[in-house]
Each structure stands twice: as structure tokens, then as C-alpha cells.
């Protein structure tokens, strides 16, 4: 037990180090973009007709703390996030990033996690069936559907469904809320409205993710099913579902759990493009906006930080989960007690 706590703490420590490293890279990239926040804002003001002098820029820099050294500002950025939960201000929009992001990141994360959970809920049983079915045609059909999911780009699927919905229902299905709920506070009706629209991005993202997970589960099952211990179990008289779940299925779960963090990352990476097409007001779209359009480094940095933190956290959880589930890892970790 002590070893397990030690393992968990070490993993947690490593996760934090990873997160700090990623933060450093993100922050450095933000710095590498030509022009400081002060210059960018004043340049923007200049286009509005105000006269900007060199002194104005310097004053603005001091106001924003940009005259301080790089490492000091990195430390402050990180410590503000960690200690105060404050991501600072967006220098283009002149708004607090927390306010800007409020709700949106949670929405994005919800969409991604729901897509992820659905994809695994479907992929695990279907992958097992696909790998072990006696009917070759069932396996072929399942493989065909999942290859479609891998081969079709998300945006194309989204566009096709949009087109279909527009032609047959007169609703483009864009956005996460209907117009009447867009700016209302959360209520049960709004939740229902959200669900009635959110299925589309969840479906688009989930199909692709399911297809990948299905291939993983199927390959692992085929692999395990051929192993001698499965035949040995059959030779002891174990049969049917008991054999399937307790032997090959149980033993192929480890690598499946391992792939969850990776899959969440992939789903989140696919989200911005889907969000762009479906005009979703969530953080993925905001990230594209910040990175590609307005060059809003603070905002982009904040979103990437949140995303990385989520993925690092999920990886931490799957690591611990694996150690609990797989005796080979657990015993290694706990020193054979």
C-alpha cells in the first residue's frame, strides 16, 4: 500500500513536471511571436485613428509588466494560474480571459468527453464481437463502418449532416443552442435544447473516435484470443461468455485504457474544425480564432494550458487505473506485496 501511494505521488509529481514543461513551451512560443502585447494593442488603436508615440508603447509595456525579464513573467503567469486561477487579460479583446472562457471550455470538454465515453462504450463490446464472431459477414460489415469512420474527414461528415438537416428539416443545426436559449441562463429547458443540438458534434467526433477505438479493441482481442492461456482455459472446461470476458477480454483491456488519454487528445484536436463548421460557441473555435485570426497569444495560451492540463490529468488517472488493474504493473509498483 505504501508503495502504491508512493507510485501515485510520483506519477502526480511527474504529471506536474510535464505540465510545467508544456507551459514553458507554450509561454515561449507566445514570446516568439513578433511584437509584444503592448505593441499589438497600440497598433490596433493606431488603425482606429489615435496617434501613438514611442512613450505610449513604453508606458503600456510597464503597465502590462512586459519590461520584466522572461523567466519572471513565466513564473508570474504560471503562479497566477495555479494559485489564483487567473489567466490574465486578453490583450486584443481587453477582457479577462476567465470571463471570456467561462463555460466555454467546460462545454468543449463535455462534448469531447461524452464523445470519448460513447466511443468506448460502443467500441469495447462491438470490437469484441467483431473479433470473435463466427459470422465473417458481421465482422466485415463492422469493419466497413469503422473504416468509413476513419476515412471520412470530420468536417465532411458534419457538412453532409448539415446539408441533410437543412434540406429535410429546415434547420442547419449550427450552434450549440437554439436562438431563444442562446443568451439565457442555464435551465432544464436549456439543457434539453443543448442536448438536442450537441448530439451532432458528439456524433461527428464520436464516429471517428469509435472507429479508431474499435480497431484497437478488435486487434487486441484477436491477439489475446490466439494466446495459449485462452486455449488452456477452454481445456479446463470454461466456455461461453465467462471464457470471453474473464480471459481474452479482461487481458486486452490494459492497452485500451492506455489509449484513452491519446484519444481525448485526438478528439480535442478534431473539435476546432468541427466547431468552425457548426459555428459552435466553445473553446475549440475560440482557439482557432485566437491563433489564426486575432493573434491573441494570451487567450490561445490559456486554452492550450487547460487542454494540456486535462490530458495530463487523464493520463495520470489511466496510469493509476492500469496499476490497480494489471497485477504485472501493480506488483512492480508495490514491490511484490
Amino acid at each position: 500500500m505504501i508503495n502504491f501511494i508512493q507510485f501515485t505521488l510520483t506519477r502526480a509529481g511527474l504529471s506536474i513536471v510535464t505540465l510545467l514543461l508544456v507551459c514553458f513551451i507554450v509561454f515561449s512560443l507566445m514570446e516568439l511571436v513578433p511584437g509584444t502585447c503592448a505593441e499589438r494593442y497600440l497598433a490596433f488603436k493606431n488603425t482606429q485613428g489615435s496617434q501613438i508615440t514611442y512613450e505610449d508603447i513604453e508606458k503600456e509595456k510597464i503597465r502590462l509588466g512586459l519590461d520584466k525579464p522572461f523567466l519572471y513573467r513565466y513564473g508570474k503567469w504560471v503562479s497566477d494560474i495555479v494559485l489564483k486561477g487567473d489567466f490574465g487579460d486578453s490583450c486584443i479583446l481587453r477582457m479577462n480571459i476567465n470571463e471570456l472562457l467561462s463555460g466555454r471550455f467546460v462545454l468543449s470538454l463535455t462534448i469531447c468527453l461524452v464523445a470519448l465515453i460513447f466511443s468506448y462504450l460502443i467500441a469495447i463490446p462491438v470490437g469484441i464481437i467483431s473479433a470473435t464472431t463466427k459470422y465473417a459477414s458481421l465482422d466485415t460489415t463492422l469493419k466497413f463502418i469503422s473504416y468509413l469512420g476513419i476515412a471520412l474527414p470530420n468536417f465532411l461528415v458534419a457538412l453532409c449532416i448539415m446539408l441533410f438537416m437543412t434540406v429535410f428539416y429546415g434547420d442547419t443545426m449550427t450552434g450549440l443552442f437554439s436562438q431563444e436559449y442562446e443568451n439565457q441562463p442555464w435551465s432544464s429547458a436549456k439543457v434539453m435544447d443543448f442536448l438536442s443540438r450537441a448530439w451532432l458534434p458528439i456524433f461527428v467526433l464520436g464516429w471517428n473516435a469509435t472507429a479508431f477505438a474499435l480497431q484497437t479493441v478488435r486487434a487486441l482481442m484477436l491477439d489475446e484470443n490466439d494466446k495459449l492461456y485462452v486455449m488452456a482455459a477452454r481445456a479446463r472446461g470454461i466456455s461461453g461468455m465467462k471464457l470471453l470476458w474473464r480471459y481474452p477480454a479482461k487481458h486486452s483491456l490494459g492497452p485500451v485504457i492506455n489509449s484513452i488519454g491519446f484519444d481525448l487528445n485526438r478528439i480535442f484536436s478534431a473539435l476546432p474544425i468541427v466547431a468552425l463548421i457548426l459555428i459552435l460557441t466553445e473553446a475549440g473555435a475560440l482557439l482557432i480564432e485566437a491563433l489564426a485570426r486575432s493573434n491573441d497569444q494570451q487567450l490561445a495560451g490559456a486554452i492550450i494550458f487547460l487542454l494540456t492540463a486535462t490530458i495530463v490529468f487523464v493520463n495520470f488517472v489511466t496510469d493509476v487505473l492500469l496499476a490497480i488493474m494489471d497485477p504485472r504493473i501493480r506488483k512492480g509498483v508495490m514491490g511484490g506485496n
Binding site: 494466446k227 495459449l228 492461456y229 486455449m231 488452456a232 482455459a233 481445456a235 474473464r246 480471459y247 479482461k250 487481458h251 488493474m325 494489471d326 497485477p327 504485472r328
Partner: peptide, 11 residues
């Protein structure tokens, strides 16, 4: 079986 390691379920 021939392989005692492989004929026990590892987990």
C-alpha cells in the same frame, strides 16, 4: 501444455 508461462492467464 508446453509453455507453462503462457498457459496461465497472466492477470
Amino acid at each position: 501444455f508446453q509453455e507453462p508461462m503462457a498457459s496461465f492467464a497472466p492477470a
